[in-house]
C-alpha cells in the first residue's frame, strides 16, 4: 500500500486527522525497509542499509539504519538525481559489491561486519587523501584522476547518509538537539549547550 494512502486509511479508521509528527512517525514505521522502492531494488536497498549504518553507526544513539537513511537515498535518487547521476551512483554501489568479491571472496552482504567496515574505510581514505602530505606531482596525479573519474561513490554515499541522518527525527533530536524556540541569546558558553544544534 502506498504509505500516504495508508495514513489516510488510518485517519479514516480513527475518525480524525493525523497530526504532522504522528504522520511522520507512521510513515517512518512503514518505511521498515520493505520494498518496493521507487528507484532501488531490494538488494540495493539492503546494501545501502548496511553501508549507511557503517558510516553513521548505532552508538549511544541510534544510527543510519533506524533513521531510515536508505529510504531517504531512494527518494533522493528518484526526485533529485539526473538519470546520469543515478546510474553513476548505482554503478558505484555494484562496484563495491564486486570489490568485496574480488578482495574478500564474498559478496558485500556476506562479509563480516569488520570486513565491510574496513572496505568502506579504505575507499573513504582513498577518496579523501591528506593533500597536504602529498608532493606536487602526487597532488596533480590525484586531481587528474578525480577529474577523469568524477566524484567517488563513497563520497556521494557519505554525503547522502549524513544529510539523510541529521535531517531525520532520530538524527536531529536524539543524536543532536533542536535549537529551541526561546528568547535568543547570542553569546553563551558552549558548555551551556553541550552539543551542536541540529
Amino acid at each position: 500500500m502506498d504509505r500516504r494512502e495508508a495514513v489516510k486509511r488510518i485517519s479514516a479508521l480513527l475518525g480524525f486527522a493525523v497530526s504532522g509528527p504522528t504522520m511522520a512517525g507512521i510513515l517512518s514505521g512503514c518505511q521498515a525497509s520493505q520494498g518496493p522502492f521507487r528507484t532501488l531494488t531490494q538488494n540495493q536497498h539492503d546494501l545501502l542499509v548496511i553501508m549507511s549504518e557503517h558510516i553513521i553507526p548505532t552508538t549511544d544513539t541510534p544510527g543510519a539504519k533506524e533513521a531510515g537513511v536508505a529510504d531517504f537515498i531512494d527518494a533522493m535518487l528518484t526526485d533529485f538525481y539526473s538519470e546520469e547521476r543515478r546510474k553513476s551512483f548505482l554503478d558505484g554501489l555494484a562496484e563495491v559489491d564486486d570489490l568485496a568479491k574480488e578482495t574478500l571472496g564474498n559478496a558485500f552482504m556476506k562479509c563480516t561486519d569488520a570486513e565491510q567496515f574496513e572496505l568502506l574505510d579504505k575507499l573513504d581514505t582513498e577518496a579523501f587523501p591528506d593533500l597536504d602530505a602529498m608532493d606536487e606531482a602526487e597532488r596533480n596525479a590525484f586531481e587528474e584522476k578525480r577529474r577523469a573519474n568524477g566524484r567517488p561513490f563513497i563520497a556521494t554515499l557519505k554525503e547522502l547518509t549524513i544529510s539523510g541522518y541529521y535531517t531525520s527525527e532520530v538524527g536531529a533530536t536524539q543524536e543532536l538537539h533542536l535549537n529551541p524556540m526561546t528568547p535568543y541569546r547570542g553569546d553563551v558558553p558552549f558548555s551551556e549547550v553541550g552539543k551542536a544544534w541540529a
Binding site: H54, I55, I56, P57, T59, G63, F117, L120, D121, D124, T125, A127, F128, P129, D130, A155, K158, E159, I162, S163, Y166, G171, E175, L176, A196, A198
Partner: peptide, 15 residues
C-alpha cells in the same frame, strides 16, 4: 554536520 561530507572519516569517530 554538513562538514562531515567533505572530510575523511566514517563510523563512530565521524559521528
Amino acid at each position: 554536520w554538513g562538514r562531515g561530507g567533505g572530510n575523511r572519516g566514517i563510523g563512530a569517530s565521524l559521528k
